[in-house]
């Protein structure tokens, strides 16, 4: 073996324990899930056939996609405004803004979901406030439906939307914006023709990240959906733990994994995903 080859082998030995751990506790169970989806209750593609025949399976997938798309769109919109504001702030203000964006990430998702329930339920702060102000006569149903799920998910996702967009915006040379103004573009014109196109890779990256997260969301939809609106993750839990239909749950899990990989594959052609996930340019 050449000295260089021996050197490389040494490095591989260093990551071997981590590699074995990942294989034993992460890759193997996933493969097992894939296997269950074609063996339970009887061998064959019977579980996958449900994708085309079962209305309830289709409804769950439709709901998940719809909530995912709406959440992504709203989180991107709010995140873009925030990221834009942060990118234009001074270095001192930027630190405070970033802290404000990141603080929610440190609070348990469970706590945040219950906090939204107390705010949005029929006797919650929002409804009581609106009733007292005379804006409404009847309490609005803000929670235990898709609306509540989307509010909770957007709240969770905004930081994930802000960070990739902010890093794209920080790479924009501010002189380019001044140049646009100097050459006759209004504020809006400079934004639409120069800033927006240059920040677009960040928007796409943030969109992919948020959408993928949204597809597999469990706690927030489970609490804010109140069991009436089912998304894929909760539906899988229901099949496996409550109805003991392992094959069906494993099939849906497989579909989820494939959907996520497909999304990544499509967008990796559009943006540099290595950079999005921190591998550096």
């Amino acid at each position: 073996m050449s000295p260089k080859g021996r050197h490389a082998a040494g490095w591989w030995a260093l990551i071997l324990p981590a590699f074995l751990l990942m294989t034993a506790f992460y890759v193997a169970p996933i493969l097992q899930v894939l296997a269950i989806s074609v063996t339970e209750p009887s061998p064959g593609l019977g579980n996958y056939e449900r994708l085309f025949t079962s209305e309830s399976v289709q409804r769950v997938i439709g709901t998940t996609l719809r909530i995912g798309v709406v959440t992504t769109a709203v989180a991107l919109l709010l995140g873009y405004v925030l990221a834009y504001r942060i990118a234009l702030a001074g270095p001192r203000a930027q630190r405070w803004w970033l802290l404000a964006v990141l603080v929610p990430l440190w609070i348990s998702v469970l706590v945040r979901a219950f906090a939204w329930v107390t705010l949005l339920r029929r006797q919650g702060l929002v409804n009581e406030g609106l009733l007292a102000a005379g804006v409404i006569d009847q309490p609005l149903s803000l929670v235990w439906n898709e609306f509540g799920i989307i509010i909770g998910m957007v709240h969770y996702m905004v930081p994930y939307a802000v960070l990739p967009m902010l890093s794209a915006m920080r790479e924009i040379d501010p002189r380019v914006l001044a140049a646009a103004r100097g050459l006759g573009a209004s504020r809006t014109g400079a934004f639409l023709r120069v800033f927006l196109p240059l920040s677009l890779p960040g928007v796409i990256a943030a969109g992919v990240l948020v959408f993928i997260f949204s597809l597999g969301f469990y706690i927030t939809p489970a609490i804010l959906g109140g069991g009436k609106t089912l998304m894929v993750a909760e539906w899988i839990k229901l099949q496996i733990l409550d109805l003991i239909r392992w094959g069906l749950g494993a099939m849906m899990a497989t579909v989820l994994v494939v959907a996520i990989l497909a999304t990544l594959a499509v967008f990796s052609r559009l943006v540099n995903l290595r950079r999005l996930f921190g591998a550096g340019g």
Binding site: D173, R175, V176, A178, A179, A180, R181, G182, L183, G184, A185, S186, G189, R193, V194, P197, L198
Partner: peptide, 29 residues
Amino acid sequence: PPERRDFGMVFQGYALFPHMTVAENVAFP
């Protein structure tokens, strides 16, 4: 405001628009 003065400006470091071709850069104004 700058956009209503109608002055041409060559910036330090040029500040060309990286997402546009040469012709699109020149066509911008």
